[in-house]
Amino acid sequence: MSILIKGAGVAGLVLAYELRRRGLNVVLNDAAPQAGLGASHYAGGMLAPWCEREAANETIFDLGLSAADWWDQALPGMVQRRGTIVLALNRDRAELERFARRTHGYQWLDEKCIAALEPALEGRFTRALYFAGEAHLDPRKALLALEEKLVHAGVTLSFGQPMTSPLRRFSKIVDCTGPSAIGNIKGLRGVRGEMLMLETQEIQLTRTIRVLHPRHPIYLVPRGEGRVMLGATMIESNDAGQASVRSTMELLNTAYALHPAFGEARILETGAGVRPAFIDNTPRIVKTRDGIAIAGLYRHGFLLAPALARQAADMMQRDRRKGAA
């Protein structure tokens, strides 16, 4: 008997990989025409548990610590272990102190060290925080690569419509549909996020940069070839409609303040997605009518999917052993 995973975003693909690695049979189904088109499509791909600790609780930090290793092992070469630089504009310098107080795993950089790490930022900032242990990946490339691995490993993938064939032929059904589960899973809500993809050859960034701002903080994640992903707003809403003018202006404003070269950058894409979250913004595995769900990954899909997948896989293996006994 095989396990049915509903939803081929980061949660579903990672779980499928984890289960297959343990020798279980998996069918992966998504109502969308291909994998990774939901919330995962708009993800930053930061593997940054120390930075997230600023607003996230200890559980999220603990679960996220092993993420970079998991991705590295699953997709060798995909993870960029180059750390994160956290900056604040001159007038918001106090934000940097506040951020530092909330977390750990950083060192202070002076102007020279900033320039040594990211020459493009030379002379623009006098202080920064550097989280050397953090990493990032390109979420779209990572999900494509993972999907390819699953196909090679004999996982059945079906797209375009929800699975309708008799569900009782599956030993377990796991809901990984992310924001689509809002309304079905109690307590799950949506937090809208907007992002942009920019391209400029004028400046090269090689690691994640976060710019603190009391109202409009941003992050920039390099995607190679002069491209950077700029994100992201946090709006309490289930609306996945196009990015708004206001949000776009806010994001671009801070990017422009980071470096005026972004004024000449091309906007390749604007996007908006809905992050599924529970009241404590912490994900969990919950029981559903016909199985379980990995739900509420919030803004931590790539950071937490590996840990949640491992937990779910452990549960299923335990159940299986109990069933066999």
Binding site: I182, L188, R189, R192, I235, E236, S237, N238, D239, G241
Partner: peptide, 12 residues
């Protein structure tokens, strides 16, 4: 206003 208009801030 975008939130209120479409009532999508519902859960919050």
């Amino acid at each position: 206003r975008e939130t209120a208009g479409s009532r999508t801030g519902g859960t919050f």
